[in-house]
Design a protein around this nucleic acid. Structure first.
Ligand SMILES: [Mn+2]
Ligand SMILES: [Mn+2]
Ligand SMILES: [Zn+2]
Ligand SMILES: [Zn+2]
Lengths: 135, 135
DNA sequence: TAGTTTTTGCAACATTGTTGCATTTGTTGC
DNA sequence: GCAACAAATGCAACAATGTTGCAAAAACTA
């Protein structure tokens, strides 16, 4: 599904920056930092980017995968809603390249997490990302 | 063990702000935000607080329990080192009062986490904290 | 207590978060 | 396509935090 179709489906106006952000995150294998996106989308105002990220997060189209020292990383969501955000994966911050990626987790871990009486459970970890581990 | 004794044990100089920070976090049942600590310790410079938190974190005496929208919460560590930080608990951000607390996790979840090939695994969740849930 | 090392306080700057408001853009009905 | 309306954008403005350099002060050691 294209980014335009996705926005339509969620009754969101199809604006340039929303399409650009969704396109960018959909094509990216890793999460993107706010500053990276700001550089890539420098034709847009940073406040507009800020509000775009808020809106897309609110509607469950993207999620903040990681935040450390004021640096936030965003990734495309698949099957999330604004209400329920229990990602069935963890967020790995690579100690080598600094990148952030979403990593699948075991069924055992999933079921352990499912028993917790909380919402928006988020696991983050540090280690070598796929690219750096295989290099 | 007093904060002074702890600092001594780690070969850290016993400065006023380090003692104050350790005292404050040791007595607190919940994690404290940077701004809360800054207000409480307003007799110290904020950069000094910033560096104090860095140092105490580096030595494994405290840990950043939660960070969101640039707001960081710190809590006392028990049995951590600067190297190994796999907390066997999760960090709950209360949707009601906004506080952050460290919450024990099940043995099953612990063992699931132990199988992950990563370091510094951190689980955060949102929900009602102990105080707000019982109110 | 004197000398050495570390820490602090302050200046300085960058980045990000956040809101208000006028202008522009997207959508809908004609 | 065009007008009208609602929503989003761009810009100003400000607060908060992150980060480094450096001189003065404090902590430690002999
Ligand atoms: Mn993710
Ligand atoms: Mn904790
Ligand atoms: Zn990597
Ligand atoms: Zn609470």
């Amino acid at each position: 599904m294209t980014s335009e179709e996705t926005l339509e489906q969620f009754n969101l106006r199809k604006t340039k920056i929303r399409i650009a952000v969704l396109d960018s995150l959909s094509q990216s294998a890793v999460a993107q930092s706010y500053s990276t996106m700001q550089n890539a989308l420098h034709e847009f105002d940073r406040i507009t980017l800020y509000r775009t990220l808020l809106t897309l997060t609110e509607y469950g189209l993207i999620h903040k995968a990681y935040e450390e020292n004021g640096e936030s990383f965003y990734a495309r969501c698949f099957g999330c809603t604004g209400q329920l955000h229990n990602h069935e994966h963890l967020h790995l911050k690579c100690s080598s390249c600094g990148g952030v990626e979403c990593v699948e987790i075991s069924d055992q871990l999933k079921s352990s997490l499912a028993q917790l009486p909380f919402q928006e459970i988020n696991i983050s970890a540090k280690g070598a990302c796929k690219a750096c581990a295989s290099a």
